[in-house]
Every structure is written in structure tokens, then in C-alpha cells.
Design a protein around this nucleic acid. Structure first.
Lengths: 352, 352
DNA sequence: ATTAGCACTCGACAGTGACGAGTGCTAACA
DNA sequence: TGTTAGCACTCGTCACTGTCGAGTGCTAAT
């Protein structure tokens, strides 16, 4: 038995209808709503074949049929061939919305993840870049009060991280620049992830230049190093989690609760995203997901890059019965918009 | 008919039982679970009186009774007299948890609101201080690249705000301090909320010192002023919103959805908190709330201060059937812990 | 190969009666 | 006079039942 043209037509019609309604679809519905030119009886025979082939299941004997994960997979693969390059008409629009005037990366992510969930009506999330691979370019100390200091860590990619801290005794303002320079010199070129392992030797080296500084700063060095090495934590943004409450398949509070608990846990989201490969766009349907809590969900993910290197991922989680074509094109457009904005606002110094 | 001692005892027993179970409580239950030394029949008579007095209602004829808002109000007022000063045994503990090593106010709020919802199991939130009343102490420009600058606004209370921006042409590094000084001098002493109204005259004044600077910075001045005046936006932190999914009264997804939609909207939360007065601790029960969506909820709020001046509020929203004594003492302890941390880490310069 | 017809299946839904938790009333009692 | 046992009454819950209808599979006719 093979998937002839008519079977494909019927299968697509069933999937389309089920995506719309979340209700098991019967032969009559198909023959009425979609003009296939055949009677319900014929459709019934075809549906029976499709069930045998594993594309459909019946929830119970007298009900219509619903698509299986296999059906969605077929549907998506087919979609894929056609909309390989969906007309990203809204790309400019998207970029304008998520472009944050304040130039803060943080806001870009917050905006993006919000837009993503508003457009798709599903749960969406963004894994922010891990900074551990980033290289330190410069350190700048800024006095706030005579005992309170702001330490700015300027990375090669021009992202700025900061640590605030207090000293037990005041540092004269006029030594700030000297100390900043000393710190910059010693830390220049190191990756954030390296700091932790070499901090002891760094502290010792810095200790030898303490004529510039004073003892209270020296006391704080271990603490500062700790803070710096902590900056590499994985950061996951999410939004639209409670959208699933609007879906009929989550009418049951217990089921909704289970889903929400899963996606509210940033570390499980981060792990989830680690599994999906490094493809520009990946789709994982139902049982293809590793996690039990997402057995009835599909996951559409994309990557975003900085100078051609993958630095983070974005994704949308919805029911397997999701509007794939809309979600796929939204995710794709969003990843492209983020690429543009990030690469435009956080250039490496490629002049050097 | 008056609230004699026995009626009070029975009322409290009923409230306690209902807080525990969320199930209408009958005379038998009371006489069994709480040792009052009287028979169910007697309790029935008393309950009938309590109903007439408006403290109890029957959901339907053959059910037990449940407390009204009036009952909770009585209960809370009574509680109030006794636990005016609950032993804040966990204050130190709390302070340790929410004290953020990084000295970031943002993290303090994030930690606090998380702890608040974890302790109470209800939705909790914090209205962050509005900075519009804060006075500018100093401006510091920090170069990131030759065209990208970080503008640090250091406020009198030692909170630091930042704006990142790009210039169309490079500024020499060695002019940074001069420009910073000029900006500091002109903006010193202004409140953030004033900037917007006087920015035109400020720009003009700064224009006259442009010998220190260059034209591209001048072009950006209006933009900078806009950014600065935008810093005053109200910021609301919230956490534990989805905890209500665990409550039996929100077993209905539609009802849960309604509640969640309300509290996810930060602006409605902010408005809600504006209504409650400036008391150190305020309790608003059921119909006492302004908003329809909170008609079945109680709201416990407290304030936190900086140098004795109210700067923000914290709160917990739960069902009217909440464990008031626990929530009240948690909210109270939390507000005290926040007071301590904020006043300790963000001192005004009281030496001047 | 397609389709009309028909018997069959099974979930949804409304109606029914037993059950039980809880009440209010009354009469007896301390 | 306050308390309590007893009892009739109310009403929601639950299990059960029968009807309805959507949908199927099979068969025979086209």
C-alpha cells in the first residue's frame, strides 16, 4: 500500500481540520469541508488504509480519527520542501519591534521572546549566549561612593558586564584609572571560563602590583574573581507559558500544571535545547521529544549567530496539533531578525 | 444577638477548618475535630445565629457552611491584636537569603519576590522604587568602543542606572572625563522626573560648553535626555503566579486563566497597589478589593522604606481562604528584611 | 473503482433513584 | 433556661440507564 495522491490529499485535509478544531475528524466532515469530489464512503476506505499505515488513530470506535506523530512528521517534511524560503515579509517589521533603542542585549531578548509568544500564541523561549567563551578586553572601575565601586568588564564583543562591591576602607578616586589599567592588563585576553581556573595565579600577580592599590582592594580580589567566573551562567528567557491554558487539550488543570512546571524550570528548558542539534531550524514532534512532559508537544527551534558562530537558540513549544507553517516561519524570521540586530549592535572589532 | 465567647470559638473553628480543607464545614465536623464540649445540635443553633449575623453562608441547603468575607475580616482583626509583633525568628535567615552578594538592587527584588511566593505558596509581587524622585549625583561616561559609550547615572542614593548608545563619529577617549564632568555639573541636583521638563534648556546650556566636546555628542543629547527621563518607569516584579493552579478553588481552567491574566499584567498590579494605603501592613479581603478578578482573593501588602521614606510595596495575593497568620508574618518579615538590606546597601551620603 | 445503504459501536447526555451529609425543628431533659 | 437527642427534610453526588447521534465497516449495486 502506498501513499497515492488522493491519500495525501485526505491526510492533509484531516491534519488541517484537526489543527483547527482539536476534534477527531470523520469522513463526512472531510468530504463536506474540503472539495475532493469523492463520497464519504470512499474517504472512509482511504482513512482505514491511512490508519493501517500508521498515520491516523481512532480515539474510540465511534469517533473520527486524529493524526499521529508520524502524520505530523510527514506533513512537516512536506511543508518543508515547499516553504524552504518563506517570504519574510515581516522581517523588517520584526526587527523594528525587537530592536531596543537602549542597545541593551537584555532588552532585545525580552522583546524577542515576548513577540515570539504573542505571534504564535504558544510558549516561547530564548537561550541567551553563554559568555564563558567571551574574551575580556578591558576592565574599568567606576567609583560610586568612596567605599562602593562598580567594576565594568568590557568583553571583546563589546558586551559589558558589571559587578558592584563594597570596600572596607576608601580608595582614593585618583587611583581608579591606575587600578583599572592594572586589572585590564592582567585580565586582557582571557576567556571568562578560564578565570576560575587561573584566578589564584592572577591574584598573586596582581598582588605584586599593589603599590598602585591598597590592601582592601587586594582582600576583595578573590571575591571579584568569583563574581566574574559566575557571569557565565546560562540564562533562559521565556514567555507565554500560560498560553496553554487557552488550548482545549489542556483543559485539565493537572495536565496544565505539569506542563507549566516543566517549562517554568529554566534548567530543564536549557537541557531540552541542548538536545536539539545545531541546525538552523529543527522540529521535534511528540514522542521525538526526550521529555515525558512534552510527549504531546512539538518543539520548533532555531539558532542565532554572532559573526557566523552559533551563540544561542530560540524556540516555541506548542501542542503537536500546532499551526506548523505559521510557527516555523515566525521562528525563522525571528532568528534572522535577531542575527541582524546582534551582529549590527555588538560587532567584534574587526578592524584589528 | 451578640458574639459571645462560644460563638467566637465556633466561628474560629469553622474558619480554621475551611482554610485547611476548602470544604464546607458542618456541625458534626466541628464538634469532633475541635473539643468544645457541646453537641452538634448546639453548634447547629449557634451556626444558624452566625449565619443570621452575616458571618457564614450555606452554599446550598444540605451543605455545611463557609465563612464570609465578614468572618475573615473579624478573624484577621482578632489575629491582629494578638500577633501585633510576631516573633520574627526567621528574619536573619530571610535577610541572608535575599541579600544579594552582587549588591544589585534588581537581584534583591528578584530574590525577595521568589522567596515570598515560595514561603506562602501564593502569588507575590514587589513594586520597585520609582526613581523619579531620585536626585542625580554624578554622570560618568565610559567608552566601550570608539563609537559606543556607556552613560552611568549615579543617583544620590547610590543607585546606578545606565544607558548605552552609539555615536556616528568617534570621541577621543581623553575627553571622556571632561565631558563627564560637564554633564555632571549641569545635571547635578536634578530629580529624574524633572529632566523631561527642563531638557530643552539643559541642552542649550550644554551646547554652550561644546568646546569640551564635539558635535556628534551634541546631536545625541536629546536622545540621552529622553532615555534618562524614561528611567522612571514603574517596575513590578512578580512570582508564583501559577501557584493558584494547585488550589481547589481554581480547578476550573477558565477561572484560573482569568486570575492569571489579571496578575500577569504588571500595570494592573501597579494600580492595585496604589489603592492600598501607605500603612506598614494592609489587608484587603474579598469584596474589599477594587478589582472583579480578585473578588475571591485576599491581598496582604506591606511597604518598604529608604531613610524612613516609603519607596515601594510588596504583597501577596491568595484566596480569601488563606493562612492569614502565616502570610501576614511572612510579608511583615520580608518587608523588614528588605528595609534592612536596602538601607544598609544604598545609604544616602549622610555625612554631607 | 466508487458509492449508497445499513447494521453496529460507543461516547455524550439527560433522567432516575439510592445514599449520605447536613440542617432545622421539636420535645425532653438538667 | 440552655442543651441535646431524635427525626423529617433538603439537596448534591454518584452510579446506572436509555436515548441520540456521529462515525465506522461491510456488502451489494453501479
Amino acid at each position: 500500500m502506498s501513499l497515492d495522491k488522493r491519500k495525501v490529499k485526505i491526510l492533509k485535509a484531516i491534519i488541517a481540520s484537526y489543527i483547527d478544531n482539536a476534534e477527531a475528524v470523520g469522513s463526512r466532515t472531510i468530504s463536506k469541508k474540503y472539495e475532493l469530489g469523492v463520497s464519504p464512503a470512499t474517504i472512509r476506505n482511504e482513512m482505514s488504509d491511512l490508519e493501517e499505515m500508521g498515520f491516523l488513530v481512532q480515539p474510540h470506535a465511534s469517533a473520527g480519527r486524529i493524526p499521529t506523530d508520524k502524520a505530523y512528521r510527514y506533513y512537516v517534511d512536506d511543508l518543508w520542501k515547499k516553504v524552504q524560503d518563506p517570504s519574510n515579509t515581516n522581517l523588517d517589521q520584526l526587527r523594528n519591534i525587537i530592536e531596543d533603542k537602549s542597545n541593551e542585549l537584555d532588552s532585545v531578548f525580552k522583546n524577542s521572546v515576548r513577540i515570539l509568544s504573542q505571534f504564535t500564541k504558544y510558549t516561547s523561549f530564548i537561550v541567551a549566549p553563554q559568555l564563558k567563551q567571551s574574551v575580556i578586553k578591558r576592565i574599568q572601575l567606576v567609583p560610586i561612593t568612596d567605599t562602593k565601586l562598580l567594576l565594568l568588564i568590557i568583553l571583546q564583543n563589546n558586551i559589558v558586564k558589571q559587578v558592584t562591591f563594597r570596600m572596607s576602607s576608601p580608595i582614593p578616586f585618583d587611583q581608579m584609572d591606575k587600578i583599572s589599567a592594572a586589572l585590564s592588563e592582567k585580565l586582557y585576553g582571557y576567556k571568562l571560563e578560564d578565570i576560575d581556573s587561573i584566578k589564584d595565579s592572577l591574584i598573586e600577580q596582581l598582588y605584586h602590583v599593589r603599590e598602585h592599590s591598597n590592601d582592601s582592594l587586594m582582600e576583595l580580589l578573590p571575591y571579584l574573581m568569583d563574581q566574574i567566573s559566575k557571569l557565565e551562567e546560562i540564562n533562559v528567557y521565556s514567555d507565554g507559558i500560560t498560553n496553554i491554558l487557552d488550548l482545549p487539550e489542556y483543559n485539565d488543570v493537572v495536565k496544565a500544571r505539569e506542563f507549566i512546571s516543566f517549562v517554568e524550570d529554566k534548567s530543564s528548558l536549557a537541557k531540552l535545547l541542548q538536545f536539539v542539534g545545531e541546525n538552523d531550524l529543527a522540529i521535534s514532534i511528540g514522542h521525538e521529544n526526550q521529555y515525558e512532559a512534552l510527549r504531546d508537544c512539538s518543539l520548533i527551534t532555531a539558532t542565532y549567530k554572532f559573526n557566523g558562530k552559533l551563540i544561542g537558540k530560540i524556540g516555541v513549544i506548542g501542542p503537536t496539533r500546532m499551526d506548523y507553517s505559521k510557527v516555523i516561519s515566525t521562528v525563522k524570521s525571528m532568528s534572522e531578525a535577531m542575527n541582524e540586530i546582534i551582529n549590527q549592535n555588538f560587532d567584534d572589532e574587526n578592524k584589528e
